[in-house]
Design a protein around this nucleic acid. Structure first.
Lengths: 197, 197, 197, 197
DNA sequence: AATGAATGAGGCTTCATTCAT
DNA sequence: CATGAATGAAGCCTCATTCAT
């Protein structure tokens, strides 16, 4: 990895974290630069605007989430029920780290940015939707694997996938509103009910 | 109502609408003033800061939502199932008006502001939580009325209420992300499933 | 005159002088504000951009030049030859004031801005051309008055007017390049030759 | 010519063209580098600053103009009148090329930079004046050759030379302001009148 | 009670320039 | 000799807020 790519990633990860915890407008470019240890002109050499940085940060978050949460959960086990659980546990994991540090529960970076900027910056909205789109296949796989069980009444795949996505989002929203990451665990229960486990 | 109170309400309703559709940071005080037809100094005579205005706007939204959505839905019928439906239909109603005007689906003002400002402005977060708190009794009443039916397996009230709140929020989030108010109708289906209707 | 109009004019006159003496890019908005004794936000309340300010300043310069140089020269006398002289003398007058203060000869604000921004900011180019357009009638009147003399071979009006405009500009350019306002006086001689005096 | 000299010249020609067409502040070093196909550090290896580059570009322009316009015109003929014409025609030639490409008429690089930077960067002003100084001998030669005709009333050499320089500049200014290179041809007529042809 | 006008602080972005390789 | 990457300073503009009337 070249030095420029390293810098780019450092900026990106910093921005993602800050946008996540403090919102797009709650952070300014100076803070992002300071936190990434780069000069402001360097930031703008890598990203043409704060908006573009947000888009790239969402994409970075999508990739990291897919890797750590979804791929990680799927690597843990082959059982769809355990995979579903693992997804929530891994999400909650990242939150617990924050709460130990007494930081408020930040919720979901994608939902946060989507709600903050959805009607203001369409590029961000698209990036958020693409992130969710990239999570769907994992839920779909879970539902299909469950449906493979001949003893179960099969679920409608598309409906269930959307419901699972929404339950996760609802849990993240609740976690942020109530400042309580245990809401994520609670959402896990609802998700299991939807998957009829 | 005195003239001052009238002005105050006009500002409040304008601010609520603008914050809802365009987010807190997406609107500035100049626009709020122009849209409410008042001078900036007048705005600051009624509200000590933009933050305070947002808090008051959330409170105003809470009252209007309670009145129009919840009280309205409850006035329509005594049947808990129909009341639940009516809640969603009334919420969707306000959205459809917007979409006819080709505006993007704005989602839920409380969720939006909560996600945007939750970690930044605690007063707003509190106001948002109070708004949701004021909606809980209606859901509770619905669940209890359903539980009154001796033929039904009774639901855990608290759990179900929280789930209903979350389902509504999830639907509003999806409606905004996908820019499609029909997501609210879809959420109604999930809510009914949760209420085991 | 309202207080706002006063402020606007103060900004405008300051900007005109600074752009004239130090060019558009040689002055920043902070300096313009400091020199006009206003806050930056005040400047932007009166003018939407630095570019718009430059356009307005050119228009202001046009009006002031027409008043002081051309109307002034025409008020001095009815004789076209003396009027032509007076135009140059009045132009040189404003320059001499500067040179006593040991400032470099600034040339012509219209030519300066036209050359600096002509290919970059079309609005400024238009404003500059409109300024020159507003000076033409005076030259035209001079040529016509001269042509009224039956003893003279009549000059082609349009050609002569353009030539007079160009001679003035050339003198201003030379005055700036050589940093010597006496070039304006020299241009007066050429102008008189063109007018065949 | 070594490779370094080649690079230096490429940068210089690029800078001259860009400064000419888009002004000193209208072009940044990044664009100059991109257009010359060199790295920024390379540019700064050859020129210590943007200002120094502008000075060198003016000198380069001076040499090229002397070669192409003046030496070229003098090589065409021995007749002073035709030489004077040829000067204007060669100047106009370079402009026409641009206008076919629908670019705005850029005027004179020396006048442009002199007007833009005359009061800001003295080195550039000097370079511009030196450029004009290097053109004077050609005009002087023309006037002297004309004066050699015993049938003509001899012209004052110095006065006429300055007038010819100024007429050219005025034509270039007009060409840029009106975005019409035919103004150069028009100036040729005035020049001929000054030379009493 | 309301307004036109003003402000200090800070936002995003871009500049000419230099370092390290 | 040339480059990819980085930087400090500064630029334009906008914000929430307050003054004076």
């Amino acid at each position: 990895m070249t030095k420029g790519e390293e810098t780019r990633l450092r900026i990106l990860d910093t921005a993602l974290e800050l946008f996540w915890k403090r919102s797009f407008h709650g952070v300014n470019t100076a803070e992002i630069c300071e936190a990434s240890g780069v000069n402001k002109a360097t930031l703008y050499r890598h990203f043409p605007s704060k908006t573009a940085l947000a888009v790239a940060a969402v994409e970075r978050g999508r990739d990291r989430t897919r890797e750590f949460v979804f791929e990680g959960a799927f690597a843990e086990s082959d059982d769809p029920a355990r995979r579903l659980r693992a997804i929530y546990d891994r999400v909650q994991g990242s939150h617990r780290d924050l709460c130990n540090r007494k930081e408020p529960s930040p919720g979901c970076p994608f939902v946060n940015l989507g709600m903050e900027l959805g009607t203001q910056i369409p590029e961000v909205l698209s990036a958020v939707n693409e992130a969710f789109a990239s999570f769907r296949p994992y839920y779909r796989r879970i539902i299909r694997d469950l449906n493979a069980d001949p003893e179960r009444e099969p679920l409608d795949v598309s409906t269930s996938v959307e419901a699972l996505l929404q339950v996760m989002n609802a849990g993240m929203v609740a976690s942020k509103l109530k400042n309580d990451p245990r809401e994520i665990r609670r959402a896990r229960g609802i998700a299991e009910r939807i998957a009829e486990l």
